[in-house]
Design a protein around this nucleic acid. Sequence first.
DNA 1: TCATTTATATGACATATATCATATTCTGTG
DNA 2: CACAGAATATGATATATGTCATATAAATGA
Lengths: 225, 225
Amino acid sequence: MSKCEQCIVREFSSLKALNKDELVKLAECKTSRLVKKGEVIFEEGENVNGIFCIKDGVCKLTKLSPNGKDHIVKLVTKGELLGQRSMISDEPVNLSAVALEDMQVCFVPKSEIMGFFDKNNQFSMNVMRTICGDLKDADSQMVNMAQKTVKERLAETLLYLQDTFGKNEDDTLKIQLTRDELASIIGTATESCIRLLSDFNKSGLIEIKGKKILLKDIPKLKKMV
Amino acid sequence: MSKCEQCIVREFSSLKALNKDELVKLAECKTSRLVKKGEVIFEEGENVNGIFCIKDGVCKLTKLSPNGKDHIVKLVTKGELLGQRSMISDEPVNLSAVALEDMQVCFVPKSEIMGFFDKNNQFSMNVMRTICGDLKDADSQMVNMAQKTVKERLAETLLYLQDTFGKNEDDTLKIQLTRDELASIIGTATESCIRLLSDFNKSGLIEIKGKKILLKDIPKLKKMV
DNA sequence: TCATTTATATGACATATATCATATTCTGTG
DNA sequence: CACAGAATATGATATATGTCATATAAATGA
C-alpha cells in the first residue's frame, strides 16, 4: 500500500487540499488496482460507494442512448477523480467508465471522502469547482451537439485531443481512439466519421498514418470550429 | 423588504437548510426585483456577484452558439436558484437568463451566500446536490442531442414541459413558448419544429389550438422517445 | 503460421433536416 | 381601427448525414 503523500497525481486533483493527517488516513483506506485497456471500471446504474483516483492512464465515460449506441461524454485522465457526482447525489452512477489504455486507479470509500468533505472546506470547495467545471463543459457540449455540423465537431474534437493529450514524437495524436470511439465522441455514425477523416486527409488538414492521426493545418482546423 | 422566513419559495430551494438567524441575515441583504417577460436577468459573460432566487415566474437559460443561434439549455422556475455555478467557480456566467413570463426574483450577494456556505454544511450540500443534478441532466441532454432525431426530441420536450409546468384548465400546456423557443430547446430550425408540430397535430398526437398545445396521446408520445 | 474476427475504407442510396421563398395569421401600437 | 412587424405555416429544394453493402487491411488467437 503506497503512501498517498508521495503520489504526484494527488497534486492535480481536489485531493491537494488534504493535509498530512488526512493523507495518511487516505492511504490506509484506499485500495489500488490495475485496469487493463478495455476493462470496465464501473457501469451505468451501478452503485459505486466511493470515488476513483486515476494515477495513470485514460478512460472514457460513456452513456448508453436509447437507440443502443454508446456516446462518449468525457475522457478522464491521470490526476482526475471519478464518481464524485454520484457520491454527492447519493445515486447510482449515470455513466460507465472504460479504460482506453492500461490504467492505475485507486479506490477510496465514500465514508472516508465524506469525512474530508465535512471537515476540510478547501477540499469540498475543490470538488465543487471541478463539478461546476464539468457542468459548464457539458452545457457547451450540449450546444455543440445541437448546433454544429459533424464536420465542425470533428475538427473541434481533433484539436481538443491534441491540446489535452498531446502528441507523439512523430507529431501524431498521443491518444489512440478507434474510429468508432471518435464517432461516438462527436456523435455521428462511424462511417461518417471515417469519411470525414478521409476528406480532411485529402484536403491537407490532417494526415492519416494507419491508425495514427497527425494534425497538419491547425489554423485551418481552428477556423472551421 | 419582505422577510425570507415567510417566503414559501424558500422551501423548495437549497435555502431550506438555513436556520432562523441565517434567514434574518438573508432578508437584510437581499434585494427584490420584478422582471418583465422578455427582460434579461443576466447575460453570458457577465459578472454576477451573487445568486438569484426565483420567487415567481419562469426563465430560460440560453447559450449563444458560434453560428449565431441561441440554444436554450434549461428552463428555471419558481423556487430555484440562478447563478450558483458561476458563483462557486468564481467565473462570469456561461449562460444568459431571460424571463419567459413576468417574474419576481431576489438577489443575494455572493459574500452572504459564501458565508452560509462555510458555516452551514447542509446548505452547501444542498447546493452541491442541485449542481450535481444539473450535471446529470446536462449529460443526458448531450446524448439526446447527439443520438436522437428531432422528432424524438420534440416528443420528449413536450412531455417534459407538461410534467414540469403542468397544464391549464383546457388541458393545454401551461408554459407558453414560441415555436422559435421550442425549436431552440430541441436544437433544430424553427421551420422544422413548426412542421413537426403540424405532423404531430395531423396524426393526433397533439392538438394545436392557436399558440396553445394540447398533448392528446401521451402513451404514443412516450413510446416515441 | 493461418484463419477468423475486427477495424477501416468507400460506394450507392435513402432520408432527415436546413434553407429559402412566400403566404397567412396574429399582436401590439399609434 | 388600421397598419407594421412578428409569429406561424407550408411548399420547393438543397444538403448533410445515416444506412446498407462490400472490399480491404489490421489484429487476434489457436
